[in-house]
């Protein structure tokens, strides 16, 4: 399911499904072959993750001797152990705080900026929009060196802000761009009517623009949450304190410390992976919409 599909005119969609339901022409490639091919591809894609979960229940020697065998028993004791000695709870909490704050900042600041760009003409508008648009193209390498020396001098490193600030900044260009597209599509009369009723600029933003932006905000939230959650390079450079590490760098620390206890390591990987898979299956539709809209910028 995609944003596109959802938004498509209903007639087109209806005709599409009718076509598939009531197609008279015989299938050119047999259904079975298709299903088979898809199943094989899906299994190949999914297998490494299954293997990871199976291996988490095995001993080192079992992983070595019979890598494909199913585990002889399912014992979550190793998972508990990995969770506790790996400080995974702490890393997850840090990731939640950092990602949550960044996404909030992106949504709030991004919506305000998009509102300004969409509803007002003002001096410097094109310049500022151009600068933000440049942000869509600039690679991380263009700023992370000076950013790190600057953060060090300002003593921001080894605080959560060292991640929240750049994650927010990196998410803003796309957020502003997408939200502006949404706002541009809103008929001007809606805003004018409110203004005639005496609503302030802020009220117009808060009670008209923001509610209208809700689908756009959801898209931006999903897209920026995923990239903040998974960001690695800056987290590696800016956070040395184990108590502040996020999941990617925390897990790396864990994996280099317990690299020879494969079962434990696979347990930690599984603990981190499974919630993401569950979240994805539950919010699959929204996430796919978010990604699709977010990437087709």
């Amino acid at each position: 399911m995609s944003l596109t599909e959802r938004k498509a005119p209903s007639s087109q969609r209806a005709s599409g499904s009718k076509h598939h339901a009531g197609r008279k022409t015989p299938l050119r490639i047999p259904d079975v072959l298709f299903t088979g091919a898809l199943a094989v591809i899906a299994v190949v894609f999914f297998f490494p993750m299954l293997w990871m979960v199976f291996s988490s229940f095995k001993s080192n020697s079992a992983i070595f001797a019979t890598p494909f065998a199913l585990p002889t028993e399912i014992d979550f004791g190793r998972w508990v152990e990995a969770f506790e000695i790996g400080h995974i709870g702490q890393y997850a909490l840090n990731s939640i705080i950092v990602t949550g704050t960044s996404v909030l900042g992106i949504l709030l600041f991004g919506a305000a900026a998009a509102f300004a760009f969409s509803r007002y003409r003002f001096r410097g508008r094109n310049l500022l929009m151009g600068l933000l648009a440049l942000g869509l193209l600039l690679p991380l390498q263009s700023y992370f060196i000076a950013q790190s020396t600057m953060f060090t001098q300002l003593a921001i490193t080894d605080t959560r802000w060292a991640l929240i600030i750049p994650y927010t900044a990196m998410g803003l260009p796309l957020a502003v761009y997408l939200l502006k597209v949404y706002l541009d599509a809103v008929p001007n009369e809606l805003f004018e009517a409110a203004r005639i009723d005496g609503a302030s600029d802020l009220r117009v933003f808060g009670s008209i623009a923001l509610p209208l932006l809700r689908p756009g905000l959801a898209t931006v939230a999903i897209f920026s949450a995923l990239s903040s959650w998974n960001e690695f390079l800056l987290a590696l450079l800016y956070i040395q304190d184990d108590a502040l590490k996020t999941i990617p760098t925390g897990l790396l620390a864990f994996s280099s410390r317990y690299v020879t206890d494969y079962g434990l390591l696979f347990s930690a990987l599984s603990i981190v992976t499974l919630p993401m898979i569950v979240i994805y299956i539950v919010f699959n539709k929204q996430i796919v919409e978010g990604i699709t809209a977010g990437s087709v910028k």
Binding site: M49, L226, P248, L251, V272
Partner: peptide, 9 residues
């Protein structure tokens, strides 16, 4: 699904 996982994992 793999898109959801941190690259480090």
């Amino acid at each position: 699904t793999p898109v959801m996982l941190p690259m480090v994992v």
